[in-house]
Design a protein around this nucleic acid. Structure first.
Lengths: 341, 341
DNA sequence: TTGTAGGCGTTATCAC
DNA sequence: GTGATAACGCCTACAA
């Protein structure tokens, strides 16, 4: 490990000069010494020790990104958006997979604190408790949350979840569906509640009687969709459409329905949420509510950097618009209804 | 930020005593002072500054994990295996997504070096050049590679890729297929070559004439499968089965075939590689070659920890056995052949 | 333009 | 048992 001391010795200059030059500050060194230092540091393949640097500056250029399930392509896409944007600012991102365990989340918050992360981005978690996230604030480490409310006054980014499922349910209704199931994940802050609420509101607005039995709250994995739709069917409940909490759930639902010989969308229409890249590959390709996740990740970084720099951030909470992506998992059954009605 | 100095002052002891106690070494402190220190450090919510610690010990408990595409559930599963295992050793993992760009890989290697990672795990990359990885070795940071050969003598873990595609092709052949296409990703070290070779060897062993036109090497994304199978079909080439470089490619292939009205597996049989969790959800569920990725990740950590501790590692290269997972994307057409033949 | 020196929070050595 | 104190590598006044 070569240090500025080594370079200084070989270049016959003080470590102060070396420090300046390797940090790109040439303001008070002669051209000659600058060249000498640069040359030698390259020859020795000098790499600054960030531990030492971090010790004195008490800041690093690390951004933490905490996701609850890296296995979900949704979060992978988010990670990409965050990484790309962070790169443009010269920051590196440290991806932390909490696996939906709040103990892991606590560990990672500690880690971020102990390694002096410049800032952190936290995403939704199945665990509604978030006090430990506030530790970041206590230690003056700025953070922004995505699709998760931590406290009443932190910086956060949401997709309009309410509107998303409202549009989803509405889309089904406009296609003639009146018996709609809802299968969602566990409540992560206000996130899933809003999704549930959007669905419920759509039912109300269109004067459709709501049936509590058709509402399932479980987890955000495909197994949840698989399990719950089977449960609904086993109970003998009837429905022609299901609004899913995310695309993975939708995949599970589709799997279960196919196994039972049901056809999608002819027999049952499905609508997802997120629009992960696999949704277009599925058969049928999934009609879903797109979250502009890449953009949300980018924006989170923008906000975080401003916070780090102590600059002003105007919007404390920013909502992104969800967007209906029509593909092949929803059928129009208005015609059918007229026949039978 | 409370430091050991603060605690020392409040507890009326030296920082040396505090340092010992907070590190769990009670060997040379009285019960009384120990209690006092513990109590105060808890009250002040003391967190050791790892920068400072890392500075003096010149080691951290960070393990780097470099993956080429976090969007691929295969790597997400690997990350899980690595994280879980690292946790049992008290190490934290820093997930680096290189996005298949060697510039990013270089950046991350630097980062690992600069932050004194205890060790790093590198995985396959589309980029065959790997000299920059050797920088880790130059700086005495141990590393182990998964499915990628860096140098002739680094510690590495492979799945037997050759055997994997051999078995895949053999499976198709045993089901009566004689015209087999191969669609793989770009050559990541020996990885893809081995996969291609396994396929070729199976053809030879079963006396099936190989047709270069049926071999496509592109990338590991679903688009690659989609694009290449369409190309083969557009060329008017005939084949009844395709061996895919990974499951994502297989998904793309399936998508393309369905769009053309072809039935799977009736018209064309598909076999993947990896067995990501989505393969079971697909329609048809994908017959594939399973890599025990979680176990491979675990093992990589085991090896890495031994290297970090300077312990002896017997197997420099470890091969894991791939496993055929039969599902619904392969049809037996022997019967058909007999009829027509 | 250049160099000296103090200090960041820890660990670890060595007296007491 | 306890406590000074010297590193670790770097940044940054402040002097020269």
């Amino acid at each position: 490990m070569t240090t500025i001391k080594d370079i200084g010795r070989l270049a016959n200059v003080s470590i102060a000069a070396v420090s300046k030059v390797v940090n790109g500050d040439y303001s008070s060194v002669s051209e000659a010494t600058k060249e000498r230092i640069l040359k030698i540091s390259k020859e020795l393949n000098y790499k600054p020790n960030r531990m030492a640097r971090g010790l004195v500056t008490s800041k690093t250029n690390i951004l933490g990104l905490m996701v609850s399930d890296i296995t979900n392509p949704f979060f992978a896409a988010l990670a990409k958006g965050v990484e790309d944007r962070a790169g443009t600012y010269g920051y590196n991102v440290l991806l932390c997979n909490t696996d939906e365990k709040s103990e892991k989340e606590i560990t990672y918050v500690d880690l971020m604190l102990q390694y002096n992360a410049a800032g952190v981005i936290v995403t939704s978690s199945s665990n509604p408790e978030s006090e430990h996230i506030l530790e970041l604030a206590e230690h003056n480490t700025p953070f922004v949350s995505i699709d998760r409310s931590i406290s009443s006054n932190n910086y956060s980014i949401f997709v309009d979840n309410f509107r998303g499922t409202y549009v989803a349910a509405e889309h089904l209704i406009k296609n003639g569906h009146t018996k709609l199931a809802f299968i969602g994940g566990e409540p992560p802050g206000t996130g899933i509640n809003q999704r549930l609420n959007g669905y419920l509101q759509a039912l109300r607005d269109y004067k459709i009687e709501e049936n509590c039995q058709l509402v399932c709250i479980d987890s955000y994995h495909s197994e949840s969709g698989y399990r719950n739709v089977n449960m609904l069917l086993n109970k003998g409940l009837s429905f022609t459409g299901v609004v899913c909490g995310n695309d993975l759930i939708a995949f599970g639902v589709i799997k279960a329905l196919k196994e039972r010989g049901l056809k999608i969308p002819e027999d049952i229409s499905i609508i997802g949420f997120d629009d992960i890249y696999l949704s277009a590959l599925f058969d049928p390709s999934l009609t879903t509510i797109r979250q502009p996740i890449y953009e949300m990740g980018s924006h989170a970084v923008d906000v975080l950097i401003r916070l780090i720099k102590g600059e002003n951030v105007i919007e404390k909470v920013k909502y992104f618009g969800p967007e209906l992506v029509e593909r092949d998992s929803v059928a129009n059954i208005s015609h059918k209804k007229l026949q039978t009605g």
